[in-house]
Design a protein around this nucleic acid. Structure first.
Lengths: 226, 226
DNA sequence: GACGACCTGATTGTCTGACAGAGTGCGGCC
DNA sequence: GGCCGCACTCTGTCAGACAATCAGGTCGTC
């Protein structure tokens, strides 16, 4: 479909780089949920002017990663149990759709790519940490790229970013990882088998299970905090 | 649940007002799809500085209403047949979910509100134009507010805005309005009857039908243009 | 006359400096 | 001890400036 002639276009604009840096800083927990982000500190930290920082913050705000209270400035968004439940609900719905779309529209090369990503993920599972996260991201990127619907891809990417906010609080539960991997493999299998129904169900089930674990932890935290 | 003590908080920040003005200008066709938006012109037009305009544009960009090409500036997004189909697909999925949620979670007052909105909509149908659009918007606002999931509400609001971009090209088809109204009434009915399945089906069916009409027009235009 | 190099104007991307106004927290007054 | 007011901190917004980049036209060469 798309020729691979696209040039890197690496450092597009400064603003985009700032966005990326901030997104990653939030994703990795460099900034904690609820923490305030003071413009000047960010300027100093990143070595750019207020213009770029402010515009990047607007973008992140639109993505739901930060919240801005007028005249008090932005802070990293924090997700309560209620919103988390809603996020997972929508995610299950859309990811089921994406899985179904993959099973129906993915090209053979895309399926092969997806399988490679799963293998890489299983390998990264032993190492944990950043490698695991990266492998998981890579898997989802391929899944979404192959589902045949860019709108879904865009929305789900945003949802993933927001759900990542939960990671700082509800870290991987001990027993969850092996089951999670098995579920992911099942998704990949059903897609490869061109089983749309099965792929959809597998995706939904995967998210349901993940949600269950995450929400349990979150609920407990929220109660103990209150 | 929420006390009705919230003050108007009308003119929050200048930036938000600019956002709103631009959004409306795009929705009403004041700016055509594909038209370039030059910063200084907007500044002059709105009587504000570049800061506010640029940050508002970032927001609209994140919402998908405009596209920005580096060093060439923003332009009103234009939707092709392919993207339109994707938008409608996702919309059907989410709106079905919202309808189901409404049937399950809406309070009796919310249902009554919804019914009032439908009546208003049916009345506005005769007048057409801005009144009709407003009534439709009002109906959807209530539907989404009652579905019990703010994430869905937020995403669907964005999708509606983007789909509005199509209105400038594919105006209401002549015969469509009466059927559309009937479908909407059915949605409301199923919700009032607490029939989750039925409400979901009605919503999906409604969007499917709307999509069919819109896509047909769009396809034709796209072909004749090529 | 066609093609490519160069120049020019228009616009964006970004920084700096400035200033009013909204919140926040502290110290004094009742 | 509680309330009021004041100083301080940030944000929101503007104006001006400048380099980088894009689009289009001009000119020179083959």
């Amino acid at each position: 479909m798309e020729d691979d002639m696209q040039i890197a276009r690496e450092s597009a604009t400064l603003r985009l780089q700032v966005e990326d840096k901030l997104r990653k800083a939030i994703a990795t927990g460099r900034f904690r949920a609820g923490e305030r982000l003071v413009e000047r500190e960010l300027c100093a930290l990143l070595g750019v002017g207020r213009t770029s920082v402010r515009e990047a913050l607007r973008q992140l705000e639109a993505e739901g990663l930060i919240v801005t209270i007028p005249h008090r400035g932005p802070a990293v968004a924090s997700i309560g149990p209620k919103e988390a439940r809603q996020l997972y609900e929508v995610r299950a719905l859309l990811e089921g759709f994406a899985g179904r779309g993959c099973a129906m529209h993915a090209t053979p090369e895309q399926v092969a790519d997806l399988e490679r990503a799963v293998v890489a993920l299983e390998k990264a599972a032993g190492e944990g940490g950043a490698a695991l996260i990266e492998a998981k991201t890579s898997f989802y990127e391929r899944l979404l790229a192959s589902c045949g619907n860019d709108v879904v891809r865009q929305i789900l990417t945003g949802l993933h970013n927001r759900i990542t906010l939960l990671r700082s609080t509800s870290m991987q539960q001990p027993g969850r990882l092996p089951r999670s991997l098995k579920e992911i493999r099942l998704i990949c299998e059903r897609i490869a088998a061109r089983d749309a129904e099965g792929a959809e169900r597998a995706c939904i089930e995967h998210i349901r299970n993940a949600a269950e674990v995450a929400l349990a932890v979150l609920e407990k935290q929220s109660n103990s905090a209150a």
